[in-house]
């Protein structure tokens, strides 16, 4: 009984529904030969031959991921740096806020045609698209986080002579970390959207382009396997983020738990 409770039951909870869904899909494909729905085993084979053993992994997937990583990293660094500078100055904050709100509300995909014109098609433009779409949630959340800093914390820093760069490092950055991480989370999904559609829209390589090619040539199982690749990237990114967030904000989650229990 205890082994059931500790091991079997959680595993069952984890896999039961996925197995059920895949089973239903498999049974469905047994009876129908729908053009749009590939059967599961064949899809796995297609997936392996298309993405793992073929050269698409190095030719399309990795370059896409590299652009995604560069764009995100730049957006995070720039967003936090600018956010700190702006958030710490009340006048600059009031001056810039409406303009930034506009850019946050602007649906990021419209930046693609603009940057195509200004930079030209290529790697730089794709990274620039990701940066210019992802920076706003991070920037605005950093500004918000800096603004919301507890005045008692700031007085503590002042009274112990913690100022300038030390204050940013030891007080402001950690204090603003929860909203900053929330901004990064929003940016992740924007980055993925922009990576895919900038490739669909404007280039002749990369994951997004390849998947659209499959669709145009009616290579349906390959198309589905491409959708699966995007899904895996999305899920992996989300897990990496959750892992990092749990470590960075361990104190915050603990604090919230204590506060909620009170």
């Amino acid at each position: 009984m205890s082994i059931f409770n500790r091991v079997i039951s959680p595993v069952l909870a984890l896999v039961a529904l996925p197995i059920l869904l895949i089973g239903a899909w498999w049974i469905y494909t047994l009876n129908s030969t729908s053009f749009f729905v590939p059967e599961p085993v064949g899809l796995v084979e297609t997936f392996i031959s298309t993405w793992i053993t073929g050269e698409r992994l190095t030719a399309d997937v990795l370059p896409s991921l590299r652009r995604l990583g560069m764009g995100l990293a730049l957006a995070i660094v720039l967003g936090i740096l600018l956010g700190l500078l702006i958030g710490l100055n009340r006048t600059v904050r009031a001056l810039t806020e409406p303009v930034f709100e506009f850019f946050r509300a602007l649906p990021p995909p419209v930046l693609i045609p603009v940057l195509m014109l200004l930079i030209g098609v290529g790697n730089t433009m794709q990274v620039a698209v990701i940066v210019s779409g992802c920076i706003w949630p991070i920037l605005l959340n950093t500004i918000e986080g800096v603004r919301g800093i507890d005045p008692v914390q700031s007085e503590t820093s002042r009274s112990y002579g913690i100022s300038g760069f030390s204050r940013v490092r030891y007080q402001i950055l950690p204090a603003a970390a929860p909203p900053i991480m929330a901004g990064v989370r929003q940016s992740l999904s924007i980055a993925l959207i922009l990576m895919v559609i900038s490739e669909m829209f404007a280039t002749s390589s990369g994951l997004g382009f390849t998947i659209v090619q499959f669709q145009r040539s009616f290579a349906i199982p390959e198309m589905w396997s491409g959708i699966a690749v995007l899904g895996i990237i999305g899920v992996t990114l989300s897990f990496i983020f959750q892992f990092v967030e749990r470590r960075v904000l361990r104190w915050y989650h603990g604090l919230k738990e204590v506060e909620n229990a009170a």
Partner: peptide, 9 residues
Amino acid sequence: PIPSVALIP
């Protein structure tokens, strides 16, 4: 976390 744009094709 599956990006909705994956569904474009």
